[in-house]
Every structure is written in C-alpha cells, then in structure tokens.
Amino acid sequence: MNEGRCRLELDAIHQYILRMGALVEEAIHNADKALMTQDLALARKVVAGDDDIDQLEKVIEALCLELLALKRPLAGDLRAVTTALKVITDLERMGDHATNIAEVALKLGEAPLIKPLIDIPRLSSMALQMVHSSLDAFVRRDVELAEKVCRDDLPVDRLYFELYDVLLGFIMEGGDKIRAGQALSLLLVARFLERIADHATNIAERVGYLVYGDCNRVNQSGVKPTASAETK
C-alpha cells in the first residue's frame, strides 16, 4: 500500500474486508460443525449471522464508492478499490452458501443420518483452507499463495464429483423417500462447499490483478470453476 491520497480510505476498506473474511470463515466452519454434530442452535446462529456479513458488504461497498467519487483513485489505488468491490461480492456469496448449509442442517434436524459423514467434512476443511489462504494472499499480495489456491480447487472438484456419484446412488435406490431426501440435501451441501471453493479461487485470481494488473496471470493453467456435475 502506498502513502498516496487514498491511503487512509484503503486502509479502512482493508480492515473491513478482513473482518468480513473472518465472519465468513467462522460461518462456514460453524455451518459445517452444526451439520456434523446436528447442533441446531449453532445452525440457527449461522443463519442469523448472515445479516452481519451482508451489512458489512454494504458498508464496504459504500466506502469504495465514496473513494471512487471523491478521490478518483488511479494506478495501484484504482486496482485496490476495484478488487475490493469484487472480493466482497465473493465473500457475500460464501456467506450465503454457509447459511444454505446451516439451513440444510436445520432441515435434517436430529434424525439419524443415512451414512456417517466423512467426505463432507473433508470437503469443508479443504474449502475453508482455500478461503483462508485466498484472503491471506489478498492481504499480503502473495501471488504464489494465490496460485496455490487456484491449484487446490482441482481436488475439491474431484471430491465433489465422487460425492455426487455416491449420493446419486442413494437417490436412485428408490423406495425410501427420507433416505433420498437426505441424500439430496447432502448433495446440495457438497455443491455449496464446491461453490465456496470457486469463490475463493476468484479472490485468488484477483490477487494477480492487484499485483500484475492482469487477472489471468494467476491461475494460468486455466482451472475454471466447474459449471455443474452433469457436465463432467
């Protein structure tokens, strides 16, 4: 960060983004924990907490627009403020997905699960690690770490596809509506986690823009977020 005319505002925006990132990480972690332990109170806490994340997004957006309108940032400052605007959108979506997972936990309630959850916690911890690293890379402008985040998206996609096959098997067995419903809900959870990892990849790609002025410099191998499991 330079010592130019936008320094104070960009510092403030940065701090807010870190706070928003911390809330999102916490929401993902808690949503996953609520699902695993069938802790409905924790799930409700995640759902209620989404308002704070949305509120922070609005505050940061307002700060960015104010900076654009009043100080007309250029060069590194311009890249910092436009990147901030993109990053908060990704963070807000991640928060929504955490809420979606918590809602699934509430829907499943305390009914016994069709299978012990092994792959979903794995997927969750991989996605969470990517979110953490992408924010770290954003703060430190660490291109190498950002590139690692992009590479880490591949195993997440693979695991999601594996889960897709397993859960599809449950659904296709037929006969038991509750089992099929649970399998479908867990498939949605996997999908939400896979999307969270995609948003982390987006943030990592923006680090390339911050540092090199070019989004395509990071993730040159072209690992793109997967559109849907059906297209595999």
Partner: peptide, 18 residues
C-alpha cells in the same frame, strides 16, 4: 494501461499522489 497499471514506480507515485 498507464492509469491502471503503470510500470514505473515514479508514475505510480505521481498518479496516487504519493
């Protein structure tokens, strides 16, 4: 290009008022 990603730190400093 110059306003979005100047190559020289002097240009960057001039544009950001540093």
């Amino acid at each position: 290009c110059l306003f979005e990603f100047p190559r020289d730190p002097r240009t960057e400093s001039f544009l950001t008022g540093d």
